[in-house]
């Protein structure tokens, strides 16, 4: 189990940030991802692995009129 934005979320072996975004249905492009307190750049989403017990913040910014 991991924490995503403070809520429990099931973990799977080899889970990347990119896959986590897909699993959560997070399609909004303006995101800030923080893994265990460390900001992850968007070009690192594919290669960054989330481990069991990790805490992930996926902060959606705002856009639109």
């Amino acid at each position: 189990m991991i924490k995503v934005n403070g809520k429990d979320y099931p973990w799977e072996e080899g889970l990347s940030i990119k896959q986590l975004l897909v699993n959560k249905g997070f399609t909004f492009p303006l995101l800030v991802v923080i893994l265990n307190g460390k900001a992850i750049a968007d070009n690192e989403y594919v290669g960054t692995v989330v481990n069991d017990g990790d805490e992930v913040k996926i902060i959606h910014l705002m856009s639109g009129g």
Partner: peptide
């Protein structure tokens, strides 16, 4: 426009 901040981010 606070929907994401509130509903998704739980900030």
């Amino acid at each position: 426009w606070l929907i994401f901040m509130d509903m998704v981010n739980h900030e």
